[in-house]
Design a protein around this nucleic acid. Structure first.
Lengths: 132, 132
DNA sequence: TTGATATGCAACCAACTGGTTGTATGTTAG
DNA sequence: CTAACATACAACCAGTTGGTTGCATATCAA
């Protein structure tokens, strides 16, 4: 069906994480990979409800400060959180728009197979008049 | 907020991919990781619309048969596709329920921050009677 | 049986991940 | 200034990933 799927979307805007605009394959990769870790999912959940410093986050997981810091960096690269400097601290906040973006992506998948079902319905409709 | 987040759900049902039942952290990991690759996303898209053999899939990507085979194995382990034997061929089909499951997960995230907004609305409601 | 096709699987490899420790730098408190 | 705190970052390491090739096995076609 598709061979050059790695060059589907527009060029990379700079490996950053823009809020609007199409996502490149690499960005979608980063997005899903960032969520493929329970600690990172938990950090996202946490920072969606209330902001937290890296120290606060690090205090709640059974790993080093540096490890948590790297998780936050991965989430930031994926655009799932943003960091803001406040004095010597870094405030981490979840980015709901990014979650919605993933939902959009999956809705795309959903439409694909809904489309298949729709076609099946059409076939049934040719046989029986009231196939709901 | 949560420390023992790795032991939230029920025990693993056998590293398989059941259609119903709660997903363990490890299963969610596998699910997101499986989607963190453009080739695998493309295979899922393809097999959601129409089934395909491994050979057919392998023919469309610029990599070896074995590589595509491993991608399919990863997707199968994540429950995103199922394989069925038909003679010497293996028919690969996408599993829409699994996509829906991820949507459910993300909807959980959405509710978290919607909850925050809801609380903000409540605060505004105390000040002005017709906010929204 | 023979040959072509479709798959499965193991061994191998480079690159990446997810953790560690150590050190440097910037910021706040006395 | 000095000490404590918060962060950044580099180096290191074991395990995983994503690709390869080669070989074994099963099925289909003559």
């Amino acid at each position: 069906m598709i061979i050059g799927h790695q060059a589907r979307t527009t060029a990379e805007p700079g490996t950053g994480a823009p809020s609007t605009a199409e996502l490149t394959d690499a960005e979608v990769d980063r997005l899903f990979r960032a969520l493929a870790d329970a600690t990172r999912r938990d950090i996202v959940r946490r920072t969606l409800t209330s902001e937290a410093t890296i120290s606060e986050l690090a205090g709640d997981y059974d790993m080093s400060f540096a490890a948590v810091q790297k998780h936050v960096t991965a989430l930031e690269a994926a655009g799932l959180v943003v960091k803001e400097s406040r004095g010597r601290e870094r405030i981490v906040r979840g980015v709901p728009e990014r979650i919605e973006r993933i939902q959009d992506l999956l809705r795309g998948f959903e439409e694909i197979w809904r489309g298949r079902i729709g076609r099946m319905d059409a076939l049934f409709a040719e046989d029986s008049p009231t196939t709901g």
